Computed example of a mutant assay.
Amino acid sequence: MKKTFILFFVAILSGFAQNTSNTVSLNVKIANRFSDTITVSSGRTFKQKVGINKNGVFQTTFEASKDGGFYRLNDGNEGTTLFLKNGYDLTVTLDTKDFDETLVYKGKGANENNYLAQKALSDEKFEMELEPLFDADEATFKAALSKKKANDISMIDGKGFDQSLVTMLRPSFEQEEKFLLEYYTQKVAAKKMEGIASPTFEYENHKGGKTKLEDLKDKYVYIDVWATWCGPCLAEIPHLKKVEEKYHGKNIEFISISVDVEKDYEKWKKMVTSKELGGIQLFADKNWTSDFIKAFGINSIPRFILIDPNGKVVKADAPRPSSVSLVELLDGLVK
């Protein structure tokens, strides 16, 4: 589940509308930077590339949200969420070797943004503590979520933060709780499928013809359920390629099943080719309503499934390619 919770939180924040007026000033100092350019963005409505100046500082001024809004600051693949409002004048310092841990804000708007940096660390710690709770009963899991929500509320109430920030954040705590409870339900359902015969599929193969699960008998099958529009899915592709390379020639097949809608069929075909995607690339017949997808209760992606050589489910919610636990799992099975 690595980063799932944090990514969900970012997705919630990016949905707030922007009302541009006046300007915000940012001065960003990055030790061990990844490049000479950073980006500042807000959903799909705003994106600015900022180059480094002769003093080694990324400096920019731009129109920001009049009532306050959430932005992303990225250096390469590393990034953080900021709360920016007209009139803010912020200096940001960080070291990419410990990106989140070293973030410090000074200037107008520093209190709000130092809080967001601490919340990101708190959420990451909670996510690590959360994993063992997926094996607990529902009452225990709900109690942990309630405790976290109460702590989140206590971190913003009465702290003197900009009221716009508080107003935007409070509904997100409820949404986070709902999201994690749904995720727990999905994990429990997936665990019940372990050891049983897997539902089958027969989907169009990118290379031609159709491929069904029975064609892969006597081998382990690692399945990636994804879509061309899914950012987290695309982020897993480089890791998936490395895993495929590691186990090349062994008794395992790597299958990617796209749940893109029919209108994105050509987009899927072109992306498989342009990104040189490996393994067996399949296109689900009815996207999210395909029988195989429904049988596994898949309502969010990416989702990974591991099936054994006898067609039985090993993991209905298997580790991601980016997780070290996947290699640990496969090393114990694949010969």
Rank of each mutant, 00 (worst) to 15 (best):
Q118K: 15
K148G: 12
W226M: 02
G107A: 04
A136P: 02
V57E: 04
V259G: 08
G43D: 09
I252L: 07
K263L: 14
D100I: 00
T228K: 10
R72I: 14
L277S: 04
D317R: 04
D317S: 13
F304N: 04
K212D: 12
D100A: 14
L169H: 01
E266M: 09
W288H: 11
A227W: 01
I153G: 11
L84C: 07
F173G: 13
E236Y: 07
V221D: 01
K149S: 11
A17Y: 13
V50C: 03
S198E: 00
G208K: 09
M155I: 01
M155W: 07
E124K: 14
I252Q: 08
A316S: 10
L216C: 06
S172A: 14
P199W: 10
D308I: 04
A150C: 05
I280A: 07
K219T: 05
T20K: 15
K125D: 03
E101D: 15
D123N: 15
Q59Y: 10
S35Q: 06
H206Q: 13
K315H: 08
K267P: 05
N205R: 06
D100L: 14
M271I: 00
A117E: 02
E253V: 11
I252E: 02
L73A: 01
K242M: 08
I255N: 07
L306N: 07
E174M: 03
A110P: 07
A139F: 12
V92H: 05
G195W: 09
A235C: 02
P171S: 01
K54M: 10
K294S: 12
K178H: 13
G209S: 03
K269M: 15
S274H: 12
Y184R: 02
S154I: 10
I255A: 03
T4V: 15
K294D: 13
L329Y: 07
R303L: 09
L103F: 02
Q186P: 08
G311I: 03
L145G: 14
R44F: 06
F254Q: 01
E214T: 13
K241A: 02
L26E: 06
N287K: 10
T39K: 14
K66F: 02
L84W: 08
E182R: 14
Y220A: 02
G158V: 07
K147H: 08
L130C: 11
K85G: 11
K191Q: 11
A284M: 09
D285M: 06
S198K: 00
V243R: 00
K192Y: 13
L181M: 15
G297E: 00
A284I: 07
E214N: 02
F58A: 05
D123P: 11
K148V: 14
S290L: 05
I293G: 00
G109K: 11
F46Q: 00
L240Y: 00
N114G: 10
L165S: 03
C230Q: 04
E236S: 00
V327F: 06
P132R: 05
G231K: 08
A117R: 11
N111G: 13
T96D: 11
S323R: 03
M168G: 12
E244M: 15
K315D: 08
V28Y: 03
D308T: 01
Y265N: 10
F9Q: 06
E174W: 01
F34L: 15
K49C: 04
E214S: 05
G51P: 09
K250S: 01
D67V: 03
F296G: 04
N299K: 14
